[in-house]
């Protein structure tokens, strides 16, 4: 049997024409695409982008620094070595702790959700 460089013979070509010519058309279903898309699973949870991670990291660092400074002042006050009671701002300590907690949760929750869907 003579074949071309793809290994296809004249008989193959004629059979291909016959199969294509005699094939019944695929039944049309205009809703097929919509039905398929409706069966797709829900979208994945949004994963944090780089700017969001950097912003949360900066908040964490600043909050951590404020907390460290205020805690040092608090300890100095307890040892009566602080120059002034005005150095201590308990509200600032609490605010910094809250900021640090929020930033940590902001980073951790999407990661935990994606790890345990």
């Amino acid at each position: 049997m003579k074949t071309d460089r793809h290994g296809i013979s004249d008989t193959d070509r004629r059979i291909a024409d016959m199969v294509r010519g005699e094939a019944s058309p695929v039944p049309r279903d205009e809703w097929f695409v919509n039905k398929t898309l409706n069966r797709l699973p829900p979208r994945c949870e949004r994963i944090l982008g780089l700017p969001e991670i950097i912003a949360a990291g900066v908040v964490l660092v600043i909050s951590g620094t404020v907390m460290a400074v205020e805690t040092r002042h608090l300890l100095q006050l307890a040892e009566s070595t602080s120059d002034s009671v005005a150095d201590l701002n308990p509200l600032m300590l609490l605010a910094a702790a809250a900021c640090a907690l929020c930033a940590a949760l902001y980073l951790a929750i999407p990661v935990l959700k994606n790890a345990n869907p």
Binding site: A23, V26, F32, V33, T36, L37, R43, C44
Partner: peptide, 23 residues
């Protein structure tokens, strides 16, 4: 981007090929 409209276009383009094989 998890673009479902784009995936819909892929489904539309290849649905006949896949369905023909399965038929």
């Amino acid at each position: 981007a998890d673009d479902r409209r784009a995936f819909g276009q892929l489904v539309e383009a290849y649905a006949d090929d896949v369905r023909r094989l399965l038929l």
